[in-house]
């Protein structure tokens, strides 16, 4: 009799949700659900990046030549150092987060507060760094010409082997063409700012300087961009239909347009994750200060946002590899 009754009670508990086979709370499981699905979203992005890259494997831009800036070091070629710094900042903010979680386990409110603050600062620095990286990418450095087929023609000084900026060698031609404003046009239409130099000016400057040659998107056997001879460059010049300065979703002076599209999309989506992570961290930070979790008796909320924060770090590790290293 009593045995039967006990079984009934156990079954009731099992189906009522009292049984916790995974030994994790509802909130934490849901965070893991989210992370697994979000990981698959990022997988989709990064794999489609890989798809485009393998599709254009012999003409893809070289990351070391695109991301060469470092704050306060103007004109110095510093590939990778800046992203490496960003990676260290994010890993370090991950560490302060896990220290906050650990302090939460020991119910040390002041320590949780301090480490959460460091995490928020680290995240904010990272988002700011990413904004700076975007600014440099959008602004561009040397400029290029684009052909009808969307190929990018860059310029190299044959004597020094260094890249030549179109703004520097172009020779000015007097023209009445100016940016069309909505205030003086019909139907209130306007256009984007014109490039600082026109195609004709670049062509004139190129013909005048015997040292300049064209560099195409194609990679040679050594994995470097193909540099044409002066004669071949002169022929190639006539195929150009427009000037490209910097990068946006349609034109990209660094090479394949898809490179810029994926750069904006993937680092943008990741940056948005970091930004929302910072916002969530701030909310939890104030809750910690107010003593919400002290009264609740546990700091599991810190652990849950911690999971999200580490995930953002984890994604960056992959973005770093596939955009900057490989």
């Amino acid at each position: 009799m009593e045995v039967t009754a006990n079984t009934a009670a156990e079954n009731e508990e099992l189906w009522g949700g009292g049984n916790r086979p995974l030994k994790a709370s509802y909130g934490k499981l849901m965070m893991w659900f989210f992370i697994v699905s979000d990981a698959l979203t990022f997988t989709g992005f990064l794999v489609s990046y890989g798809f485009s890259r393998f599709k254009n494997i012999n003409s893809w831009p070289i990351a070391d030549e695109v991301f060469t800036h470092f704050p306060f070091l103007h004109g110095i070629d510093a590939p990778m150092y800046y992203v490496a710094l960003m990676t260290f900042i994010l890993i370090f903010s991950s560490v302060t987060m896990v220290l906050a979680v650990d302090a939460g386990h020991h119910m040390q409110k002041s320590k949780v507060t301090f480490y959460m603050l460091l995490t928020i600062i680290g995240g904010a620095i990272f988002v700011g760094s990413q904004a700076w990286e975007w600014k440099n990418f959008i602004k561009g450095e040397y400029g290029a010409l684009e052909t009808r087929g969307g190929q990018i023609l860059q310029f190299v000084d044959a004597s020094s082997g260094k890249r030549a900026a179109i703004q520097e060698f172009a020779i000015g031609i007097e023209t009445d063409r100016s940016t069309h404003q909505s205030s003086n046009g019909i139907w209130y239409s306007s256009e984007k700012a014109l490039p600082t130099v026109t195609l004709e000016e670049v062509k004139k400057g190129f013909i005048a300087d015997e040292n300049l040659v064209i560099r195409t998107q194609q990679l040679n056997e050594k994995g470097q961009k193909t540099v044409l001879s002066r004669a071949a460059s002169m022929g190639k010049l006539n195929e150009a239909i427009g000037v490209v300065e910097g990068a946006n979703l349609i034109h990209n002076e660094y090479g394949n347009r898809l490179f810029a599209d994926f750069f904006f999309f993937i680092t943008g989506f990741h940056g948005f994750h970091v930004f929302s992570g910072v916002v969530i961290n701030i909310i939890i930070f104030f809750n910690v200060i107010l003593g919400t979790y002290e009264r609740r008796g546990h700091y599991e909320m810190v652990e849950k946002v911690g999971l999200y924060w580490h995930f953002v770090d984890l994604v960056w590790v992959f973005v770093f590899t596939f955009f900057y290293l490989v």
Binding site: P21, L22, K23, A24, L29, W32, S94, V95, M97, V98, G306, L307, H310, F311, D313, L314, V317
Partner: peptide, 16 residues
């Protein structure tokens, strides 16, 4: 190592 030590997967049950 990020997943196992920072996200504490090392400490979770094998099912999870």
């Amino acid at each position: 190592y990020i997943a196992w030590d920072f996200m504490h997967i090392r400490d979770e049950t094998s099912g999870l």
